[in-house]
Nucleic acid binder design. Structure first.
Length: 571
RNA sequence: CGGGGCGUAGCGCAGCCUGGUCAGCGCGCCUGCCUUGGGCGCAGGAGGUCCCCGGUUCAAAUCCGGGCGCCCCGACCA
């Protein structure tokens, strides 16, 4: 491939619109361009990297026994109404009408379509299990797209759906995908971690996420340093220490005047107590009415856990007016005593023998409050977010809190969609049964960005060999010296003939310009052909990541490069 | 949707507060010369509805009103 003939519009300066490193580099390396917010053109080099990811995904999915299909991007509202998600999915679902006024959406995911397909075409247990996948454009009207390809609105996703006769078979299918995903991300050269994930309002018994570790990641995860426990922070469990320190019995609730003392820090300082002795009372609005959540002063509420415990989809902190209406006091003075909405307490707060709370009276707090004696709880449970200081819920070891980019998610769906859309099969006894389902997503375009987040330096991208748009670059120092040009052309031609993906920088540019662009593009192996080395019938080979250089005789050059490429792809 | 910022040549920006003499700079692009191992140098040149609409004014990139777009923080998020 000739550089001069390709559209590779590299930029010297960082575009002002980009913040994340992968976003800047994708633009600077001329791999993509923005069309509008969260929507990008893939340019030739970017597309090559994207295809690399797609092919790895495709190979491993096929190897795992899945079959590729391609479903429509545009979907009729009827299916979404049938599954009940037309009204649930929210504004993220891009909806529109055709010329006849019929409702459609641009698919953000394909459970409805695939289930519809399978319910029509699968009648017998003999046709199961079945795993169908596609690699396709999705659209989610994200509230705020950001970080380029990491959270775009339009993106490329591999989504797979498996269909099974029973739970055990579904588990096996889940495990097969789990294993395939590990192979995929390993082959992509990514440093990743598999974590337990929240199943969310979608339900299902369990799910795992595959996280690429990167400081710019939007997700937080807890990872045990001693055992293999790792979970999304939304999901990570907190265990109450068994040896809970004996707490002094409460002396009885006593109101204390605390003018303008609202936050935990202010209360602690004013009353000369520790945040651990204070309990925050958070008032939430839910679709089942208002509730109060009690959390110890030094802890943070985990709204996902609250949502799951209550079985609600809407959970919003009440505004100042509503708080006053429910507690009779301004924000900052809410407390459990005398509150007549359901009270849910985090287990650590509930375990306190004596606590400081708001008094439900502006300017007052209560000290010596005892749970049960002074107020009733609807339930005490694990409702807070783990911290670095908490022990691993499995082995008691130390936890690390890490950042990650979610690149894959495997889900056991169970019967949710087969029931909603009546996807059934006949078992060996001729009885009608619902089909067990699983679904499995991979953010294909997001992987490209994630790989750059993990692989870059001040000079540009550092691709893993498996994702590199070109495996090698050939740079003639000058295009005006016949001997140099001839040698470079021969190397380029021979590499292409041998199946190496190579870019020949045939531009009439100074060497520095070519080196800079080569580094920016992140091509793993760089072959420089110049008069110095040519005099010894050799060329210089440099590795983008290792930054080592070697002078290789021209006669050995092709095998040398092929060997290094092969080693990096398979070693 | 709340908070903040931005919109001037392909890209990065200055000019705006204090209206006129303000269409500017760097990079990139084109032509020529020169140079050739880390974004060379010199000379010449092309390229702009100053986001849009309206208003104020003798006069608007600049002031005022409205709109649109984009970015960041947050809320949100299979």
């Amino acid at each position: 491939m000739l550089f001069s003939r390709m559209l590779i519009p590299t930029l010297k300066e960082d575009p002002s619109e980009a913040e994340a490193d992968s976003h800047k580099l994708l633009l600077r390396a001329g791999m993509m361009r923005k069309l509008t917010a969260g929507i990008y053109n893939y340019l030739p080099v970017g597309l090559r990297a994207l295809r690399k990811v797609e092919n790895i995904v495709r190979e491993e999915m096929n190897r795992a026994g899945a079959q590729e299909v391609l479903m429509p991007a545009v979907q009729p509202a009827e299916l979404w109404q049938e599954s009940g998600r037309w009204n649930v999915y929210g504004k993220e679902l891009l909806r529109f009408k055709d010329r006849h006024g019929r409702d459609y959406c641009f698919g953000p995911t394909h459970e409805e379509v695939i289930t519809d397909l399978v319910r029509r075409e699968v009648q017998s247990y003999r046709q199961l299990p079945l795993n169908l996948y596609q690699i396709q454009v999705k659209f989610r009207d994200e509230i705020r797209p950001r970080f380029g390809l990491i959270r775009g609105r339009e993106f490329i996703m591999k989504d797979a759906y498996s269909f099974h006769t029973d739970e055990a078979e579904a588990e096996a299918g889940y495990q097969a995908m789990y294993d395939a995903y590990n192979r995929i991300f390993t082959r992509c050269g990514l440093k990743f971690k598999t974590v337990e994930a929240d199943t969310g309002p979608i339900g299902g018994s369990y799910s795992h996420e595959f996280m690429v570790l990167a400081d710019t990641g939007e997700d937080l995860l807890a990872s045990c340093t001693a055992c293999d426990y790792a979970a999304n922070l939304e999901k990570a469990e907190v265990i109450l220490p068994a040896n809970n320190p004996a707490v002094p019995a409460a002396t009885g609730p006593e109101a204390v005047h605390t003018p303008n003392v609202r936050t935990v820090e202010e209360v602690a300082a004013f009353l000369k107590v520790t945040p651990q002795e204070i309990v925050k009372t958070l008032i939430y609005e839910t679709d089942k009415g208002p509730v109060a959540v009690l959390i110890r002063g030094d802890h943070e509420v985990n709204e996902v856990k609250v949502r799951n415990l209550l079985g609600v989809t809407d959970l919003i902190l009440a505004g100042p007016a509503r708080v006053e209406e429910l507690t009779g006091a301004e924000v900052g003075f809410a407390g459990a005593v005398g509150l007549n909405i359901p009270i849910y307490a985090d287990q650590a707060a509930a375990a306190l023998g004596s606590m400081v709370t708001g008094a439900n009276r502006t300017g007052y707090h209560l000290v010596g409050v005892a749970p049960q004696r002074d107020f009733a709880m609807a339930q005490a449970a694990d409702l807070r977010t783990v911290t670095q200081n908490d022990p691993c819920p499995r082995c008691g070891g130390a936890l690390d809190i890490l950042r990650g980019i979610e690149v894959g998610h495997v889900f056991k769906l169970g019967l949710k969609y087969s029931k909603a859309l009546k996807a059934v099969y006949l078992d060996a006894d001729g009885a009608e049964q619902f089909i067990f389902m699983g679904c499995y997503g991979i953010g294909v375009s997001r992987i490209v960005a994630a790989a750059i987040e993990q692989g870059h330096d001040k000079d540009g991208i550092i691709w893993p060999m498996a994702l590199a748009p070109f495996q090698a670059a050939v740079i003639p120092i000058s295009v005006n010296e016949a001997a140099v040009v001839d040698a470079a052309l021969r190397v380029h031609e021979e590499l292409e003939a041998q199946g190496v993906e190579v870019l020949l920088d045939d531009r009439d540019e100074r060497p520095g310009v070519k080196f800079k662009d080569c580094d920016l593009l992140g091509i793993p192996l760089r072959v420089v052909v110049g008069p110095k080395t040519l005099a010894q019938a050799a060329a210089e080979v440099r590795h983008r990541r290792k930054k080592d250089t070697a002078i290789i005789p021209l006669d050995d050059l092709i095998p040398h490069l092929k060997e290094r490429i092969s080693r990096e792809l398979h070693g």
